[in-house]
């Protein structure tokens, strides 16, 4: 199943912020995590993640810092800010509204 572009774009911010809310992470790990939790249904083009991260950083929702990994590779880690946590909670609650509505419709249809 292919998720349409608009839906991918709209869900990217809450997904990224929620992942970073859990722990600091870097681009590659974020992409893999998204694949994991969506059973590879949500497939972002790898490169498109970075402009989004940039935008979130400019908006003050995340910070970044460089860190060396165990194999000596330098990675740019992202860390959610207090403003980012607020934003994340707002976005997630918006998605929950949509999710609940769809879920109720489904229940009506199946006569549950």
């Amino acid at each position: 199943m292919n998720i349409p572009k608009d839906l991918v774009a709209a869900s990217a911010t809450p997904i990224i912020l929620s992942i970073l809310h859990g722990e600091d992470s870097y681009g590659y790990a974020i992409i893999r995590k998204v694949q994991d939790i969506s059973d590879s249904q949500i497939a972002w083009t790898d490169g498109m993640l970075y402009p989004v991260l940039h935008r979130l950083e400019t908006a003050g929702f995340i910070d970044s810092y460089w860190k060396k990994s165990d194999n000596g590779r330098r990675r740019k880690y992202y860390h959610i800010t207090a403003a980012g946590i607020d934003e994340c909670e707002l976005l997630v609650s918006q998605w929950e509204v949509v999710h609940r509505a769809l879920h109720k419709l489904l229940q009506e249809k199946t006569g549950y």
Partner: peptide, 10 residues
């Protein structure tokens, strides 16, 4: 550099 690090991870 961020993209390169990603490429190498991949």
């Amino acid at each position: 550099e961020e993209l390169e690090s990603h490429l190498r991870d991949s």
